[in-house]
Design a protein around this nucleic acid. Structure first.
Length: 320
DNA sequence: ACACTATGAGTAA
DNA sequence: TACTCCTAGTGTC
C-alpha cells in the first residue's frame, strides 16, 4: 500500500485538516505514550512528505517522523475535506471509512488505508455509537491525532518518533530526490549521475531511497517494464538519456498516483478498461504480481525472482 | 488455532 | 544473507 504516492496524499490530508490547528495526541495502543504526551495540545504547523517518509512540525521544535513500512496506515475520520480524488483504492475488498464533512454530507474516504467501516452497526448497538466522537479506536492504534473535527489514527508504522529540527535534517539528508519535492533539473541530474556511477543492478538502485526517494516494489517493477529495461542491468550500463527517462517516468507515475490514490501504472486507459483498472488491482499493472501469466505485450511468461529479499517481477521478452 | 503474506528498512553476522 | 520489527487479512487445518 504505501509507496511514495500514498505518503504524499496523507501529508496533503494533514495539511488540509490539521495544519494550523491545535491537536490532541494519544497512544491508545500504549506504545507511543511518551511521544504522544509531548505533542499533545500543541499546534501543528505543517506536514510534508519526502519519499516514503512524512514529517509533521509542531510548535516548539517538535517534529513527528512517520514511516509506514510495509503495512502501516493512517485512517482518517470526521471532517476529511480535500481536493484529492475519491477514487476509492480499497473499494472492492476493503470497507471504507464514512466521512462526514463540515456540511454534514457523507462520502467515502479513499485517503490512507481505511480498514474499518462504521457503516454497519453490530446488532444491539446504539445509534450513538455510530456517530460517537471521537470514534472508538479499533485495533492497534499507535498514535491518534485529533482536532475538533478530524481524527487520524496511525497503526503499524515501522517508524514513529519525535525529533528536533536538526534530527529531521539528518533524515532528509539521507534521502535521494523526490520528484514532487525536488522539482528542478538539478534533481534529475542528481538521479542520473547516481545511476551512472554504479555497477549495482538498476532494479536495486530504484529501490535505494538514497538514489531516488519514494519508489517501492510495485513502481520499481512497473517503471522498468515501461522502459523495457532488464532489472539486472548495471546502472552504469544505461545511457544518460535512458536514466533520464526513468526519472521522468517516475515523476509522471507519482503524479498520477497522488491524484488517483492508486498505483496506476498502465496509464492512458479509457472506458471499460480504465474502470476495470480503477476497480481491480489485477488490471492495474504490467508485470507486478503477474508471475507465471503471459506478458500483456509479448505473451512471454512474466518472471519472478528474489532480488534483495524482495519479489522482482519482469518480462524477459520485453526487458533487455 | 495456526500459517502465511504484504507496496520496508535497519542491524547483525 | 539472515534476522528483526510492526499489523491485518486471507487461507488452511
Amino acid at each position: 500500500m504505501p509507496e511514495g504516492h500514498s505518503v504524499h496524499r496523507i501529508a496533503r490530508q494533514f495539511e488540509a485538516n490539521f495544519a494550523g490547528r491545535t491537536v490532541s495526541a494519544s497512544s491508545p495502543q500504549g506504545r507511543f505514550t511518551v511521544g504522544a504526551a509531548e505533542i499533545d495540545g500543541r499546534r501543528m504547523l505543517r506536514t510534508f512528505a519526502v519519499g516514503k517518509q512524512m514529517f509533521a512540525e509542531f510548535e516548539g521544535d517538535a517534529w513527528l517522523r512517520v514511516h509506514l513500512g510495509m503495512y502501516g496506515a493512517w485512517d482518517f475520520a470526521g471532517d476529511v475535506s480535500t481536493t484529492l480524488g475519491q477514487t476509492g483504492e480499497y473499494s472492492t475488498r476493503r470497507p471504507q471509512v464514512r466521512i462526514e464533512d463540515s456540511r454534514g454530507e457523507t462520502s467515502l474516504s479513499s485517503i490512507g488505508a481505511p480498514r474499518r467501516t462504521r457503516l454497519r452497526m453490530a446488532e444491539g448497538e446504539q445509534e450513538s455509537e455510530l456517530t460517537a466522537w471521537p470514534p472508538e479506536p479499533v485495533g492497534a492504534v499507535r498514535l491518534r491525532l485529533l482536532t475538533d473535527a478530524t481524527c487520524a489514527d496511525l497503526r503499524g508504522p515501522t517508524a514513529c518518533e519525535l525529533l528536533d529540527a536538526a534530527a529531521v535534517e539528518r533524515h532528509l539528508a539521507k534521502l535521494g530526490p523526490d520528484p514532487l519535492v525536488d522539482r528542478g533539473r538539478a534533481a534529475e541530474e542528481r538521479f542520473v549521475s547516481r545511476v551512472a556511477g554504479k555497477r549495482t543492478p538498476i532494479g536495486i538502485l530504484l529501490m535505494d531511497q538514497s538514489v531516488v526517494a519514494g519508489i517501492g516494489n510495485v513502481y520499481r517493477a512497473e517503471i522498468l517494464f515501461r522502459a523495457g529495461i532488464d532489472p539486472h542491468r548495471p546502472g552504469s550500463s544505461l545511457s544518460e538519456d535512458t536514466a533520464r527517462g526513468l526519472w521522468r517516468d517516475w515523476a509522471k507515475l507519482l503524479k498520477i498516483g497522488v491524484e488517483v490514490g492508486q498505483m496506476m501504472t498502465i496509464d492512458g486507459l479509457r472506458g471499460k478498461r480504465k474502470a476495470d483498472a480503477l476497480r481491480n488491482r489485477d488490471d492495474r499493472h504490467w508485470v507486478y504480481g503477474r508471475a507465471g501469466l503471459p506478458c500483456r505485450v509479448c505473451g512471454t511468461t512474466v518472471a519472478l525472482e528474489e532480488m534483495q529479499a524482495r519479489k522482482l517481477y519482469w518480462c524477459p521478452g520485453c526487458q533487455h
